[in-house]
Each structure stands twice: as structure tokens, then as C-alpha cells.
Design a protein around this nucleic acid. Sequence first.
DNA 1: CGCTAAAAAGAAATCGTTTCCCTTTGGCAC
DNA 2: GTGCCAAAGGGAAACGATTTCTTTTTAGCG
Lengths: 153, 153
Amino acid sequence: MNSDTENHGFGAVLKELGLKETPKRRVMLEILAEEQRFLSPEELWLALKGRFKTIGLPTVYRNLEELANGGVISTVIHPNRQLYYYFCTAESGHHHHFICTSCRRVEDIPECTVAAMEGEIVTRTGGKITSHIVQFNGFCRHCLADPNERTAI
Amino acid sequence: MNSDTENHGFGAVLKELGLKETPKRRVMLEILAEEQRFLSPEELWLALKGRFKTIGLPTVYRNLEELANGGVISTVIHPNRQLYYYFCTAESGHHHHFICTSCRRVEDIPECTVAAMEGEIVTRTGGKITSHIVQFNGFCRHCLADPNERTAI
DNA sequence: CGCTAAAAAGAAATCGTTTCCCTTTGGCAC
DNA sequence: GTGCCAAAGGGAAACGATTTCTTTTTAGCG
């Protein structure tokens, strides 16, 4: 399995978003897809530096934003207010996350209950909801059981 | 109703948090309490400048954080990732917000459904939730009805 | 009234993020 | 295959919200 020949179908994903399929975008998606935890732009940049002689941090920011806007990856808002990114394997459309602020694992939460909340809010306020931020932070069962596994962001 | 003599009971609130009752803290709370919308630290600072000859922006940040940690005011995370603050009149303990990204009005949302979600998440993941971010963004009924009322943040 | 720790001022630093401008490249046309 | 052009990327620099630092002031207690 060579990343130069096996592109995990990311090329098609990029094309759908109207984005050119560049090596950097492909590798960004590869790294995010292989990583089980959410990453900061700078961390992703450091990983990319190992595979490209030249790679700028602005490029990483730009692509992360485009990919997130396209729904290919999702954002994680850490309580420290920094932005992290996560490749969502769940193909199940819109949903939310329970993130471990220790080891950075992410678990998917189905969207259902939030949709119910939205309906109630719209009914009661007469407003219109354009977006929402729903995220649960805590310790996953691994970090809960074994404090030694805990890491700091 | 003079703010020098009528302190809305904010002194007691500050004392409960172990904070000294300073004129600046009192006026910060006054301004936030009178304001129906969420404010940025800088906006609050500008308002304070009208009432104090010297008032530093770091002071505003420091106090906002202390008050938010104490639960006296609550934070609003705007999609633009800036932090805003809002004085919650609802005494009903923990709850969430529907914010209008146009006029900045805030409506309270009871906590109930989120608590149910949390229970389900804990059961399913075996983790422990330490905090959550739940916020709905959109247009309130006023801005929905009258686009002229809309303002940009 | 004096003391002491907390609070505040003001300037400067920090740092995540974005902008600018120039160079390179993907992808379609011929 | 070659050329073209808009999109993508590099690198430096700007930006701007937030924080840190050091000194001065003040609240609140004895």
C-alpha cells in the first residue's frame, strides 16, 4: 500500500468539492485519516514536513478550512479555544462528538436529539437556526481507567 | 437609581466568589446586566472608558474570566471564534443559549435535553463528561422579520 | 490609620491565524 | 505532448485577540 499509487479515493472527494487534487491535499487527508485523534494545524504541519521538502503553515490552514467547509473533516473546539481537526470516519452525515481532552480520541454522537432540541427552540423563539456548536468534553474510558495514558494538550 | 448607591446586590455576588468589590467590577456587571446582548471584551472596555478615567483592557479580560469562572456571567462562542460575554438573568442554574448572530440577542434554553444526551453518551462510551459546549446560532424572530434590524458583528 | 494581599495600569510580548505577493502546478485545450 | 491559466503553494510579514510582566494603587481588615 503505497500512498503514491493508493489514494484512498481522496481524489474523488477533492474533485467533488471543486478542489484540485494536489499531493499535499492528498497527504493531509491520509495523515488525518490514519490518525485516530484530533490534530492541531501545527501538528499536522509538522507531520507534513516529514514528507515534503517545502510545506507552508498557511497552506495547511487554507486546506484545513476548505476541507472542513466541504464537510470532509470536522472541527473540534477545545476548551482552550484552539481549533483542532478530525477526519470523521462516520459516513452518517451530520453528527456530533464526544472528545477526550486527554488522549484526544473522538467518539461520534448521532444527531437525533439535537434535531429535536432545534425544533423546540425554533417553535418557542420564532427564530431560525443557522448553525450550532454541540460538543462534549471529558475523559474517554481508556483515560478514565488508566490515568497513565492521559496526555496533556 | 444611582449606581454609586444602588449596586444591584453585585457586591454580595462578588464576595461569594472571594473577589473584592471594586468599582470597576461593579460597573462591569452593571453594564452587562443592562445590556440585552452579548458583548466582546473590547466593547465592554469602550463602555467602561466612558465611566473611568483609567481602565485597562487586561483588567477587563481578567475580570470577565473570573466572573465567567464564577458562573456570574456566561460566555458565547461566536462562529468567528471570538469570545463574547453575556449576563444571564435566568437564575435557573445550568442551561444553554440560542444566540442571534445578527442583533446578538440571547435566549435561554433549558438544560434538560442535554442532560439526557450526556447520560446516553456516558452509558455508551464508558467515559466521563467534564464539560460541554452547546450553543445554537441563527437569527432571532426580530431579525428574521425585519432584515433592516440586522447588524453585523 | 496602617498593612497586606488583591487589583489595576500600561507597555510589551505572545502566538494562533491570516494576508500579501510572487512562484509553481494541476488539469484542460489544442 | 505542449501551452495556457486559474488555482495552489511558499515565505515573509502582518494581524489581532489575549496574556504576561512589572510597578503602582486600592479594598478590606485589624
